[in-house]
Design a binder for these strands. Structure first.
Lengths: 347, 347
DNA sequence: TGTTAGCACTCACCTCAGTAGAGTGCTAAT
DNA sequence: ATTAGCACTCTACTGAGGTGAGTGCTAACA
């Protein structure tokens, strides 16, 4: 059953009032603040109907109305209008992001900072999933008699290294040879495949010493691959939730903080969400049933996908937050595409 | 004026009771639980004297006594006995730390985890200050037409790298030449000196192209040096404070979390503290005047110094926590020395 | 038939008084 | 010097009464 025009107006009024003041909204205050041309009594009747339909709830008999998850869902789907970012916010974003264009992780971290600074909510940003990245080359370098550096370079420019303490002696030549061997072996394979796929048996291991060296390098090689595959999670503004009336109880706050403390689980959950701007409200979430979670995706090279997100009470400024997130992800994707574009263009 | 034997006994009893139960301690309960051979009335008189001397306070007239910062200080300095770690905890520590011996940062992070798991307090651990580390070599490596990797290796095995997008074209030869030039230039200099010291003017820059390449690499070189100098801070168990009665107020909890959110400031403050196990109680702290902060230092190669720490209410089990921290830092130092020792020994 | 005024009713919230209980501080006896 | 005894203090809890915001219903109105 569809809502009448007036019911929509009233619902919208209740939502915006509640979002603003965090207190149940009464019929009289709606009638006064929003010029609907009807008396409080009429509004009361409509409210009663809206409650029956599940759009409003009632903390107790003599309290005003509060929008339900269903109301926010309706608002987000049908009522919400796109909001333009303020020039100030746009400038802030552009400045901050361009300051660290080359440094991948720093840019992502800045995105998380910007999100929480502008929305005053808890926010996060994660580095892209690089399962699809392929190995460009592998290099082993000497440091001292027993110490070498293992370096894996992906074709996206993604680089990771570890320092190894070898138990067997090595020569510079053997390191170079092994580097070449491993590069031939792994070049072009995706990280995921390199980690999980079968290990191709030693290519040209006539030399006993080389085989030994390889044996002591492989465990670290695998560990380093794993590390490359790891998504880095940056969180900001966690303490913002303390300012929200909904979280004035210590138990609520604790639950909230603990959810973030379990980083791996949290990361996995976020990666499971669809691409684009996704809003899940209250009960629509697995956990955090009194929160709204908004995530959005950015792209690197058009392929790799990373996520940013915001978490707050269901009572939030959906229009402003979604606009901000769209702007931010566009900016990020642009940023990460442009650098490559430039390179290719001038080549 | 010194305290009598009996006063010390009473004070100790009050402290251990209060540490256990977090509630003001009355004269009657002391008389019952601890066999001091005197009546509550006598204890009351002594308590009154102790209060006059500043060792106890009184939330209100009809409440029991609570130890003051001064009391804890006395306890820590004179009364506290060394406590042995349980075999279980020792095993836990040894297992966890040895699992990641090669990976520096992972080991430090595990140390923070162990601290908070065992003490149920908020804890942190930071990677060592490497100002004194010297540069071993610098290497530039090609990735693709416009992308190169800059890698700086310290003599402690500390390695950092960045990916650069060059605006000028390069040749493999020029990269190698520049690597050599820069290595000659910076080899043996401390990171701190390399970053802050004067830039030695181009060594052998007859070739125009090399000078240009150098120009576009230097900013990133400096940024990477800075990154190497950065101390990494790992924090664990922040949510533990929610379980502590002292922090049941949301404002307290917020202040606490915010202090940790300002990582840079926090890191700086911790680094300013003396070496060894340092305990600062309540008012002795700059901020967090109702907390006790305990820090301890571990060593890498006998030179570089890193810190671990625990933060909780002044009401904490000082004996257990300090023993744990001593054990943990010894283990860390041992860990980080042994690997080198082994190398040198077998060389 | 939709809208509105009026009014009784509900319920959270605040305040206040009264009570119980823990613990002190003082005094006088040992 | 120590202790028993007792008055006193102060918090925490409880229940009663008052207040005000807001509803829900009814009857009158356009």
């Amino acid at each position: 059953m569809d809502l009448s025009e007036r019911q929509l107006q009233i619902l919208q009024a209740i939502i915006s009032d509640y979002v603003e003041n965090a207190e149940p909204v009464g019929s009289r205050s709606i009638a006064k603040k929003y010029d609907l041309g009807v008396s409080p009594a009429t509004i009361r009747n409509e409210m009663s109907d809206l409650e029956e339909m599940g759009y409003l709830t009632h903390p107790h008999t003599s309290a005003g109305r509060v929008p339900s998850d269903k109301a926010y869902r309706l608002y987000v789907n049908d009522l919400m209008k796109k909001k333009n970012l303020s020039a100030r916010d746009k400038r802030l974003i552009n400045d901050r992001l361009s300051a660290s264009r080359d440094e991948f992780d720093a840019t992502i971290r800045h995105a998380a900072e910007l999100l929480s600074e502008i929305t005053h909510l808890a926010s996060f940003a994660m580095t892209p999933v690089v399962n699809e990245d392929t190995i460009a080359f592998i290099r082993l370098m000497p440091v001292d008699a027993r110490t070498i550096i293992l370096m894996i370079v992906g074709n996206s420019g993604n680089v990771t290294n570890t320092t190894l303490r070898l138990k067997v002696p090595y020569t510079t030549e053997s390191l170079e040879l092994l580097s070449k061997n491993m590069t031939v072996e792994y070049n072009g394979r995706t990280l995921d495949d390199a980690l999980k796929g079968e290990i191709i048996e030693d290519v040209g291991t006539d030399i006993e010493a080389l085989s030994q060296l390889r044996g002591s390098v492989m465990p670290s090689f695998m560990k380093t691959l794993e590390d490359m595959l790891n998504v880095h999670l940056y969180m900001e503004g966690m303490t913002n939730i303390f300012n929200i009336p909904e979280y004035s109880s210590i138990d609520r706050a604790r639950d909230f903080m603990e959810m973030f403390a379990r980083k791996d689980e949290f990361t996995r959950k976020m990666l499971d969400r669809d691409d684009g701007v996704v809003i899940t409200i209250g009960e629509e979430n697995d956990s955090m049933k009194d929160c709204t979670l908004i995530t959005a995706t950015y792209h690197v090279d058009g392929k790799m996908v990373g996520k940013i997100g915001v978490i707050g009470p269901t009572r939030m400024k959906y229009d402003e937050v979604t606009s901000l997130m769209e702007y931010l992800t566009n900016n990020l994707s642009e940023s990460f595409r442009l650098t490559d574009g430039k390179d290719d263009g001038r080549k």
